[in-house]
Design a protein around this nucleic acid. Structure first.
Lengths: 225, 225, 225, 225
DNA sequence: CATGAATGAGCTTTCATTCAT
DNA sequence: CATGAATGAAAGCTCATTCAT
């Protein structure tokens, strides 16, 4: 991001006057618009003009607040990671019930991708660019998913109770869950054309969620005697 | 695609001279260059000029042979589906050994994504555009993966031998395999930043492949009485 | 026009074989298509491709037969002048009835513009280019309108009979007739928007033709003592 | 015209600074250059680059102020109609002298076409496009020529004084005058080639103007008992 | 703090024309 | 005779960005 970008996000809310609030609103509007536009059109397809119009602001404001298109895009990535992290943090699990907790985690992850398709397309876009932007972000590193830690604890608890097998990594389990939730949403359009089915009907979605839960439970299940 | 786009005439091979061959080469060069460029930069980022230069040809020839940028992109999608199909067709499986065959399928799918990263990014790009282009392709519809049919037969064989459980759909199994192979490659850059690991080392790749095989085998395993 | 243009128009029809006839047809098709395309889109808007497609031929054929786009355009101008001349030559007038003959001439001129709108737009296009192309044509000079000569004779006859005034030039009368017939057709689209009327209805057309006849007859009428 | 085109804001004249004035100049320069370029080369031949260079500005500014080439062209048409209207409004006529007034009107119309050849070629160009652009203009509709109304009053006055015949429409008289002034200028290049005369010499122009005046006066003259 | 104006490079596409058989 | 292939310039338009107040 350009050095000229004003980082108003650290502004103390205490001394915020009317002016500053309006500015914050303009900044937020741009950021929200950018999420939508980049998610829909990609990085190259998401033009500065599209974003400023969607934010009901002006091109110039993007440079005023974010320094450059790339600076804005990086903040977009940070924001969606932050939101994901925040949502994960709100997960309330009962450590005493590892199976139910694991189901809840799966439902959460699969549901999050379903309800936040921008998250999926933005990550795909960033992967197209080989993670070039996210590497530049200092803050993104802070957002290491709490989900893995949650799964680790949950696994430990289940293993202690003899409900889960012991030779499995939290990381792999996390990837397994994420992969199946993500791929289904991410590739739904080409898959629909390919399979000749509608993958977005409530029934199809429920079927897939159940299949993923069933799969994960079979994977963690201990060897039968 | 524009009606003016010249399709490669496979008819009248009799009078194919030097020029016709050169034309074939030009067309092929453009198509191959387009696969690389679109895979690397996406649809919007993959400019006509980048492609024509990579093909050592001229912008104009893209319009001569493909009618438009979109026409070329559609042919790119058709081509990568065709290649995938062709590769799948070359798979030799022993129906008498369903477990080994299933393992071979998984290794093939996971390996294909690994060895053909353009396939992954091109599909992501097309999904970003909500499958808008693949829908326009008549040919793409013919390329419904033989893989599902292979899995179906393999499942039936395993079930007949009592090696596999009976309440599982070939489609779901296909998606499970694809999801885990695809996601790992597709999202490797953001995952690397996120997990702080290198996912592309031979060890990491082998570990994941084994995990997927293990997962799938557990999923198809019959209930132990 | 380029020196390489083949002028097949002078080819003796006697020794024309099948090949030559087909060529003549291709040439004619192009010329006819060019008249339509140039009349509709103007010189710059009338692309070589539009013409070759309308003629169901190929761009290359235009260069083969006409040397260049400009060469074709010049032949188009020659052709429409030739047709106009030919049509005028077919006019049969009774020199003994100068008033009726004059009316017939007016009806012919006004009607010709009406029935041949390409003639009007092609002349406008050529005037936009300040007659640059028609000057290059040798043949166009041969086509000095017989209409003026006809009017001259007709005027003389009327004057001899005391039906027409004597102090009027055939040239001016010709321009008067042409101007009123031409302008009405040439400018009908802007006039329609301007006047808020439909100028192309049969009634409107008949009204204008009658008005022009009435005007011309008043102009040639001798002073009433 | 694109909705993004910035219209000249005539509001808030209070804070008009140097920049705003410069912008006004840029916009005006482009509009004036466009009139010349479109008049000379037609719509297709009048390239954006030719215009921006003639205006000593940049291609981009045409899109900034007019949205598109078509938007600029529409404003050009509006402007030439506006100018024509304005010039007509400045005509000072003595209603008590209908013959002299009618002569003045004819001299004005014929003179206007002579002195404003861009008006003629631009209207021809618009008619080539079948009035497609002028229809899109809202403002153009307001510019219904005051000339017709002037002629109407003048006719009424002359009729009241017994100087003009009563069975003649102002519209027809307007078209008669316009046709003869317009055609002579519009078609002067092809007519010159055709007639082998120079139509633009002062003598030729004066001759034609007098002929038109004579013609119109004969047309409106009452029947001599 | 905010914003109209300006900028030049780059975009996709079409142009008239020539090459090579 | 006829035609697919090739070519480079130029078309209309959009891009991200900076200027000047």
């Amino acid at each position: 991001m350009s050095a000229t970008a004003k980082k108003t996000r650290t502004a103390s809310p205490r001394r915020s006057g009317v002016r500053e609030q309006a500015a914050q609103t303009t900044r937020d509007n741009i950021l929200k618009a950018a999420i939508k536009v980049f998610a829909r059109y990609g990085y190259d397809g998401g033009s500065v003009e599209k974003i400023s119009k969607a934010a009901k602001s002006f091109d110039r404001m993007i440079y005023y607040y974010f320094g450059s298109k790339e600076g804005l895009y990086i903040e977009v990535l940070e924001e969606i990671y932050r939101r994901m992290n925040e949502a994960e943090s709100r997960l309330q699990l009962d450590p005493g019930q590892p199976v139910a907790a694991l189901q809840a985690v799966i439902r959460f992850v699969v549901g999050y991708y379903r309800k936040n398709p921008e998250f999926v397309t933005l990550l795909n876009t960033e992967n197209l660019h080989k993670g070039r932007h996210i590497i530049k972000s200092v803050r993104a590193r802070e957002y290491s998913s709490p989900a893995i830690e949650v799964i680790r604890q949950l696994l430990a608890s289940g293993q202690a109770q003899g409900l889960f097998r012991s030779d499995i990594l939290a990381r792999d389990l996390y990837l397994l869950i994420a992969a199946n939730g993500y791929f289904y949403m991410s590739n739904r359009h080409t898959l629909s054309a390919f399979l000749g089915e509608d993958l977005e009907s409530p029934e199809a979605l429920a079927h897939w969620e159940n299949f993923v839960i069933d799969t994960v439970l079979r994977v963690v299940a201990p060897a039968s005697h």
